[in-house]
């Protein structure tokens, strides 16, 4: 029995050594977390970002590179897609209805068989039917906005003008439920002051207020707009004598809309 225990102890020691080496002998590198799916944010994108989004979809969710890659030869290369589109729309074999490069590219995503590049058709169909699935359906199921992003990317890739307009509604609705509820912007400074309960600490204009923060009833007389803006965004940058630093929250920069901030600053600066 003692042999048995010895052998077990020995084996456990060996395993412990291997585990220990894996922990302490080599660095622990945290692998990148799986990529998140893309959300198109309403109006908040530049065309450059939109193209980048298209690329991400092209490489990832769209699974385009599985076939459209330089090695596989399973599908045509797309480096010239935008240029080739013009010729293809004139081709006798073209069966689609596109009038522009953008329309052609969009059509090629949802109706791949409208034009099949010679040699890439489904086996036995004499290049009349494309093996490519409809990118807006099936497992890929790109949304309207995602499809447009891919078109924008393809235009960018082939060096033609990017004519795609960033959709303002289509993509956003797809992901709307993922975004936190947005606060409606305040209409004027008074409403804003009420919403954020500034008077809990400050006297502002004619309104009565608590003594925790400096009196702001005539603040515009002694401070200019730039100072006030900074005081709201970085309350601890310059704390007046007699008041403790760190009392006022430093998070208004994140909570206020830019326009609100300006309204508020203008309102305060006018209190003379």
């Amino acid at each position: 029995m003692s042999h048995f225990l010895k052998v077990v102890a020995f084996s456990l020691l060996v395993i412990a050594f291997f585990t220990g080496f894996s922990f302490f002998g080599v660095p622990q590198i945290e692998p990148a977390p799986p990529p998140k799916e893309e959300a198109v944010e309403r109006g908040a994108m530049t065309i450059e970002q939109f193209v980048a989004l298209g690329k991400k979809i092209f490489d990832g969710k769209g699974a385009c590179t599985l076939c459209h890659n330089p090695v596989g030869g399973r599908a045509p290369a797309l480096e010239r897609a935008g240029i080739a589109a013009v010729e293809r729309m004139k081709d006798a074999r073209y069966r689609g209805a596109a009038k522009s490069v953008e329309e052609y590219l969009y059509e090629s995503l949802v109706k791949p068989s409208a034009y099949v590049v010679a040699g890439f058709g489904k086996a036995g169909t004499n290049d009349t039917e494309s093996p490519m699935p409809d990118a807006s359906a099936g497992s890929i199921r790109l949304s309207e906005a995602e499809l447009r992003a891919v078109v924008a990317y393809l235009q960018d890739l082939s060096g033609v003008e990017v004519t795609v307009r960033i959709p303002t509604d289509a993509g956003a609705t797809a992901k709307a439920q993922d975004k936190p509820a947005q606060r409606a912007p305040a209409k004027n400074a008074e409403e804003l002051i009420a919403q954020f309960a500034c008077t809990a600490c400050h006297k502002i204009g004619a309104q009565a207020g608590g003594p925790i923060g400096p009196d702001l009833s005539r603040i515009g007389a002694s401070r200019d707009a730039a100072y006030l803006r900074r005081a709201i965004l970085e309350p601890n940058a310059d704390v007046p004598k007699g008041f403790a630093p760190g009392v006022m929250p430093a998070t208004y920069g994140e909570q206020l809309y830019a326009r609100e901030l300006e309204v508020l600053v203008a309102y305060l600066a006018a209190l003379k």
């Binding site: 980048a52 690329k55 330089p70 960018d156 890739l157 060096g159």
Partner: peptide
Amino acid sequence: VKMFGKRFD
């Protein structure tokens, strides 16, 4: 990767 406003494979 995109460099110089172009895409490089």
